[in-house]
Design a protein around this nucleic acid. Structure first.
Length: 268
DNA sequence: TTCCAGGCGTATC
DNA sequence: GATACGCATGGA
């Protein structure tokens, strides 16, 4: 990880990163494009303006402490994505996907924020998901805690216009606040058990659970299967993904998802 | 008007 | 355990 401190800014040097590939592809829903290769957004309640491309990035008005404690983990800067792409390139489809969007990384988000976000993602589109989460954070003046949300009702959440998902969010907040679903424990549990725990929440099925485990709990074995990935699997992997990718197949999924959606999606 | 959006819960077999 | 269907909302 290479970086320089420049006054109140951080200059980051990272070849395996493009902001459009990580902040605008449905991994996280709290980033808005402010210009070419420039975004403003949040990790929980920590704001950031970030811009740059082709190996050089500017993180504005932050501190070295926040960079090392918040943003370096968030952008997964300790993981060697060149090595991962080299591994994936043993497979022709993944090789094409890796070449298509080289700037992809896994965003390691907060577990609770990730859980809320992906519950809202169910049978929804990215624009609306972002709108719902923006209204939620604006309403509270910060990203609400499980305790705060557990006191809400379907009626009191009406302003979100989140439809049938409102009751799912309340159920999630209540179970997390009461530790019926212990997010601290989920971090420690192996993938399969962690998935079962999350699925105790109404509105969390296999796909949402995998998204949350991948993004919110760094379980890279989690492999979210949505309609797009179903198409990839049917067309390219009728016998399943090669076993050698199992441990990091969630990251492989990010490349495949972006590839099929942006590239194959045009053909429809 | 109809269809769809990074699914899930429920009923039914 | 597999399959069909409804679900709130809003954009195309």
């Amino acid at each position: 990880m290479k970086y320089e401190v420049s006054g109140k800014d951080i200059i980051l040097f990272e070849d395996d990163l493009e902001l459009d590939d990580v902040l605008d592809t449905g991994q996280a829903f709290r980033w808005n494009r402010t210009g070419e290769n420039a975004y403003f957004g949040y990790c929980l309640d920590r704001p950031l303006s970030i811009s740059g491309t082709k190996g050089r990035f500017l993180l504005k008005d932050t501190s070295e402490e926040d960079f090392l404690n918040v943003w370096a983990p968030y952008f997964d800067l300790d993981t060697d994505y060149s090595a991962l792409r080299e591994l994936y390139s043993k497979d022709p489809t993944l090789k094409a996907a890796c070449g298509f969007s080289r700037g992809i990384r896994l965003l390691r988000q907060d577990g609770w924020e990730s859980l809320v976000s992906f519950i809202f993602s169910s049978n929804n589109n990215i624009t609306r998901i972002k709108g719902i989460i923006a209204r939620l954070a604006e309403h509270y003046g910060h990203f609400p805690t499980p305790e705060e949300l557990s006191g809400e009702t379907v009626e009191s959440l009406g302003y979100l216009r989140s439809g049938f998902r409102a009751r799912y969010i309340i159920d999630a907040a209540q179970k997390v606040a009461s530790k019926e679903v212990d997010l601290g424990l989920i971090k420690e549990l192996p993938y399969e058990q962690a998935k079962s725990e999350l699925m105790k929440i109404t509105g969390v099925g296999p796909k949402v659970a995998d998204c949350v485990l991948l993004s919110g709990f760094s379980k890279t074995e989690a492999f979210p299967v949505d309609v797009w990935i179903k198409r990839v699997m049917a067309e390219y992997y009728p016998d399943g993904l090669p076993e050698e990718f199992y441990q990091t197949r969630g990251i492989a999924q990010l490349y495949l998802f972006n590839y099929i959606r942006k590239f194959k999606g045009e053909e429809k």
